[in-house]
Design a protein around this nucleic acid. Sequence first.
DNA 1: TAGATTGTTAATCGATTAACAATC
DNA 2: TAGATTGTTAATCGATTAACAATC
Lengths: 205, 205
Amino acid sequence: MNAKKIPDIIIGRLPVYLRALQHMADAGLKTTSSQELGEHVGISAAQIRKDISQFGEFGKQGTGYSIEFLINKLREILKVDQSWDVIVIGAGDLGHALAHYQGFKNRGFRVAGIFDNDKNKIGQTIGDFVIEDIATLNDRVKAQNIKIAIMTVPAAAAQEVADKLVQAGIKSILNYAPVNVNVPSNVKIQYSDPATNLQRMTYYL
Amino acid sequence: MNAKKIPDIIIGRLPVYLRALQHMADAGLKTTSSQELGEHVGISAAQIRKDISQFGEFGKQGTGYSIEFLINKLREILKVDQSWDVIVIGAGDLGHALAHYQGFKNRGFRVAGIFDNDKNKIGQTIGDFVIEDIATLNDRVKAQNIKIAIMTVPAAAAQEVADKLVQAGIKSILNYAPVNVNVPSNVKIQYSDPATNLQRMTYYL
DNA sequence: TAGATTGTTAATCGATTAACAATC
DNA sequence: TAGATTGTTAATCGATTAACAATC
């Protein structure tokens, strides 16, 4: 009865709180309140208190939250108090950009490799990486126990690639391909198709 | 009393329906049902019917929805039955990738330019684009009446850039920078920070 | 016609907000 | 102490689902 199920919508906000808190810490701040944090992220103070209180009593009446302490707790809860190996599938422009992305390393991730199925790309060097053959993906993922993949493949290839990833043991997929993909319920998938993201805003123009 | 307010959460699902319908159309299908569409996108049939019915009676009892008709309606509703000029701010790897992105052109968008503030980058050619000076952004946005921008700038620059965009008349911002940004309530912003997206999934590992 | 499927209403479920006692 | 702010409860609000008459 300890493991009460936390709603996905709350989990989804925690990385936003964490990012804002790290920003505050970088600015030299020591404590914050639900009010102040809420103003930073555009969420009500009540909701922030409720979200955080799901995981324990991390604040103090009268003074608020220790930024450093709350950062540590959130990193623990989100399991980003460690470094996860991530692979990138699809060595197009977007794959290149994400393989090089400097923003992962302080946030719990390390790119462990980039894969493609194009014989002309395999073996080529991009930055620190050599593009690997997708045929070797299964062995790599299993040998290194990799759990997270980023897909930057064409829409037509996405389902097939996702199936291979799941087969290899990947449990989290960040999908930039503009297509819905079916995965088993024990695998998490996040969609980040650029055109879909833009289309969410044009209605309001 | 015609303009009842449609919840944001419904608007956010429409591009997903549209993408799935276009996929079906490409496969040569002519009609679909809320049941079938729901299976494609992982949403209940009841919710799809409810969402779509906000905008009119687009289906037929017994037979479902004409895919082509529904595509046209959704494109109209989302205002992507036209081509929007989009600018990219920040000519790093991610900015390059998005400026080159081939997936925009059939989905209502055209990249109209890419800007940076780095004197060493300004004037350089990337594909069809010459990197422009961010100092010229205001004039360009106003002259071409551009409404949409993609930000791929460092976190430290994001608020300042967003202020400039808003000042110039941009109304929709797709933000890849890992930071929260304040914009007036008449400007829409979507966040797409890669590390945050990954952190939404590690909890479940 | 019989079967299928919509659009819509009512019921349920879940998320957010308001309020406040506890307490630092 | 007085002021501030948490954690939590109850109230409100909103979203999802179930069910079904209408009808193609």
